[in-house]
Simulated assay, not measured.
Amino acid sequence: MVEHRMIDTNGVRLHIAEEGEGPLVVLLHGFPESWHSWHHQFGPLADAGFRAVAPDQRGYGRSDRPDAVDAYSILHLVGDVVGLIQALGEEKAYVVGHDWGAPVAWHTALLRPDMVRGVAGLSVPPPFRGTEPPLAAMDKRFGGRFYWNYFNRPGVADAEFAKDTRTALRKFFYSASGDAPGADAGKQPLVDPERGWLADMPDPEALPEWFTEDDLDTLTESFSKGFTGALNWYRNLDRNWELTAPWQGSVVTRPALYIYGDRDPVPAFPGTPELIERLPDLMPNLRREPLKLAGCGHWTQQERPAEVNAALIEFLTACS
């Protein structure tokens, strides 16, 4: 049975969902999501002897959403995870992240390996730092049309997505899933800044089986206060690049697992396919070849819960 409560940590109040007893597994969601994106994982992890805890990360759901844009840097986000582990009475945890949660998980393992038993990332591979600020790089490569750059415009995406939150989320989840017609992992997510991002996204007549109307209701409620806190994560991409300069060339040394879908656009971002191919050489403790899920889009643990759960439990058990 999933239980909910609030935790004070790192200067913010976080809502968490939790189930089970045993070694702690922290589950970190991405954009535009909430703790609920892990609802298929709670029962299986608890049954396997683990304590699963999924927060609404800062800026999301029932958790605090600081006003300052720079309060969403990667150091703040890692600090929230570290504080959460400690607030839960633990010294170490497994850290698992999807989408934006994956860079937070990877950086937690990179910056605080003493607190991480093992780390798993879904969709987004480890954060090997590039040679130039990411927002600037994408702006130059795609003429300002890459979605990161669109999100970086103050108030613009915030207003577009909040105009009809339920429709925006329905379009997001369907268009980035493996069920969307013509789903193409190689198509870059470019936005016409005048028309917005939602204009060209398909709006399904019926949702995929793995994403129900109840799921959409729960997600819509979690964005009742808007999208600004969540979008502020993207507005720190160049700041994060500056802040992580001391770790240039560093690699994650803790036991690691990487899972992605072959229809997910994120692993096809510029330079990422080459990075994924090199992961076994770059990561000294990668426990298996990157697991590619056939027909799976971006929402890895929701689209393919059985396969993700099996891989996670095998990995966590081997690290215990």
Rank of each mutant, 00 (worst) to 15 (best):
128 F>L: 13
71 A>F: 00
170 R>D: 01
171 K>D: 10
81 V>P: 01
160 E>K: 11
72 Y>D: 02
67 D>P: 00
143 G>K: 07
158 D>Y: 04
110 L>T: 02
111 L>Q: 07
131 T>Y: 15
113 P>I: 01
99 D>P: 03
59 G>W: 08
152 N>M: 04
154 P>M: 09
94 Y>P: 02
152 N>D: 13
148 W>I: 03
129 R>W: 13
66 P>M: 04
76 H>E: 13
74 I>R: 07
75 L>V: 09
104 V>Q: 04
147 Y>F: 12
166 R>M: 07
78 V>C: 11
97 G>L: 12
102 A>G: 05
112 R>P: 00
122 L>Q: 10
172 F>N: 09
137 A>R: 15
103 P>S: 12
76 H>P: 00
89 G>N: 05
168 A>H: 09
120 A>E: 05
132 E>M: 09
68 A>W: 02
74 I>W: 01
82 V>C: 07
123 S>R: 09
122 L>Y: 02
159 A>T: 15
130 G>V: 07
106 W>F: 02
127 P>C: 09
78 V>R: 10
117 R>M: 08
139 D>F: 11
97 G>S: 11
96 V>W: 01
109 A>E: 05
64 D>G: 15
146 F>T: 03
71 A>S: 14
118 G>F: 03
127 P>Q: 11
110 L>W: 05
81 V>S: 03
112 R>K: 15
146 F>D: 08
158 D>M: 10
147 Y>K: 10
122 L>C: 06
66 P>H: 11
136 A>D: 06
92 K>E: 15
74 I>Q: 08
166 R>C: 04
152 N>G: 00
115 M>G: 05
69 V>R: 14
95 V>E: 03
165 T>Y: 05
72 Y>N: 02
165 T>M: 10
173 F>R: 07
115 M>I: 08
105 A>W: 05
142 F>V: 09
67 D>R: 15
69 V>Q: 13
102 A>L: 08
126 P>Q: 13
158 D>R: 13
126 P>L: 08
150 Y>L: 06
156 V>G: 06
127 P>N: 12
173 F>W: 15
63 S>Q: 12
94 Y>G: 12
75 L>Q: 06
177 S>E: 09
70 D>C: 08
169 L>P: 00
68 A>P: 00
97 G>Y: 10
72 Y>T: 03
73 S>D: 14
159 A>I: 02
151 F>M: 13
124 V>I: 13
93 A>N: 00
67 D>W: 10
64 D>C: 12
84 L>W: 10
95 V>Y: 03
99 D>F: 01
151 F>V: 01
129 R>S: 08
73 S>F: 11
89 G>Y: 07
164 D>C: 08
